[in-house]
């Protein structure tokens, strides 16, 4: 299989990465090269094989319901691009 230029632009938008037409073109070439490598998987019959999502076969550990974190807003917002009145500012959110 190989990705069309349209698909490249669609996933770039899904991932919120701006791409110029030239970039999309080179990216398309690279991605198709990589997918050639990936396609080897399709030849393998994996029927009945349990997908492996984690490196260990363990179950989730649970935390007690307790408040352990103090307010560190000042420290956290010191590294923020834009804040005001304790809020993070972004271009107007339209709903």
């Amino acid at each position: 299989m190989s990705l069309t230029l349209e698909q490249v632009k669609r996933i770039a938008h899904l991932a919120r990465i701006e791409v110029s037409d030239d970039e999309a073109l080179t990216t398309q070439g690279h991605l198709n090269g990589i997918f050639q490598l990936i396609e080897q998987m399709q030849a393998v019959d994996t029927a009945g094989v349990e997908p492996m999502a984690h490196a260990q076969d363990l179950s989730q550990r649970l935390r007690d319901d307790a408040v352990t974190e103090a307010d560190r807003r000042a420290a956290f917002q010191a590294v923020a691009p834009e804040t005001e009145a304790g809020l993070y500012l972004v271009p107007k959110v339209i709903e």
Partner: peptide, 13 residues
């Protein structure tokens, strides 16, 4: 998202 105006921006809590 708080939409009251912060110089045309939204505030996030």
């Amino acid at each position: 998202s708080l939409h009251e105006d912060f110089h045309g921006k939204s505030g996030i809590d």
